[in-house]
């Protein structure tokens, strides 16, 4: 297993460098943001681009970028969206808001999603199952911003239960902040709950009809015992990686939901950096997500072995 992990980590480093290089070259191959014709500031913008080395060959620019990152951990300063500010600082200052709302959302979604899935599977082909399955499909087919607007209108405007927007500040653990996050958390949770419900129900239904479940019952286990000890654990082989997959999404945030509730997170950062051709910011965010995504892949693969000991990673047997 150790050897396997080391192999995967080395592969990951190579992948990160290749992806970074591709991103670096591709973003700079985009035509530079158009300079306003006859604007008096055009000359200054051109001079600054020249000084920043944007007219040098791409690989020379990439070399300078790598040198700065590896020798000084300097990811550069934003030259458009947050002029003059360190891009790593900007990104890290915005990450907590995204992480907290998504974390709360997943913590709410896991028990509810799995719970509804179990109930639907145990009550398969009854009105309970039909109701849960239908609602699940409706929720999955509805974009999350629809829930956001409904929550904002009914819970914030009509009932006055929550503020319209997430509170300003960084005290994410405070009660006031948590309450202000609830509309965001709810908007994000609906589709996650529905996904977990659907996955859990499908897996559980399949496991419950397996022969080993019949064997467990004939050995004298009650239905509850057989379900919890055997069926549920087996269905977790699929559900747990799905949960881990959702955790990866924590980092990337939701562009639309963050915008509606004014969450000062990273949701729009990536897209905005591309639109504004803010190269340093784009590169920093790209590298971050590449590393997080690759690490998450490794964690998910390893997790299989812990959930189901029959699965052996890297084994050639």
């Amino acid at each position: 297993m150790t050897k396997y992990i080391i192999q995967r980590l080395l592969l990951m480093i190579m992948t990160v460098i290749i992806i970074t290089c591709i991103c670096f070259v591709l973003i700079r191959m985009l035509p530079p943001a158009e300079l306003p014709l006859n604007d008096i500031h055009t000359k200054v913008i051109e001079a600054r681009r020249e000084a920043q080395g944007y007219n040098k060959p791409y690989m020379v620019q990439f070399g300078i970028f790598l040198k700065n990152v590896f020798t000084r951990f300097d990811w550069g300063v934003s030259d458009k969206l947050y002029f003059g500010q360190d891009v790593a600082t900007i990104f890290l200052s915005k990450l907590p808001a995204t992480v907290f709302v998504n974390l709360y959302s997943i913590l709410l979604s896991i028990p509810l999603g799995i719970g509804f899935g179990i109930v639907a599977a145990l009550k398969r082909n009854t009105w309970v199952d039909y109701t849960i399955s239908t609602l699940t499909m409706v929720v999955i087919s509805t974009p999350s911003f629809v829930f956001a607007f409904l929550i904002q209108y009914f819970l914030s405007y009509k009932l006055g239960l929550f503020p319209f927007l997430m509170n300003a500040g960084t005290d994410y653990m405070s009660w006031g902040m948590f309450v202000s996050m609830l509309p965001v958390i709810l908007s994000l949770s609906f589709s996650v709950i529905a996904n977990f419900t659907r996955t859990t129900r499908a897996e559980l239904c399949e496991v419950l009809t397996s022969e080993f479940m019949l064997l467990a019952r004939t050995k004298g286990l009650t239905k509850a015992q057989a379900t919890v000890r055997h069926a549920f654990r087996n269905c977790m082989v699929v559900v747990v990686p799905a949960i881990l997959g959702e955790f990866i999404g924590i980092m990337s945030g939701s562009l639309v939901i963050e915008k509606i509730f004014a969450v000062p997170g990273v949701g729009g950062l990536y897209l905005n950096s591309i639109t504004a051709r803010d190269y340093p910011l784009f590169l920093m965010v790209s590298c971050f997500y590449t590393i997080v995504g690759l690490l998450a892949g490794i964690v998910i693969d390893i997790s299989y072995g812990f959930i189901d000991p029959r699965i052996r990673m890297g084994s050639k047997k």
Binding site: Q152, F164, L165, K259, I260, A262
Partner: peptide, 17 residues
Amino acid sequence: QVVAESSTRKLMFLKGE
């Protein structure tokens, strides 16, 4: 504060915010 959506701005305005 940043309020991106005009629908949100309207609701906040009608609430006196």
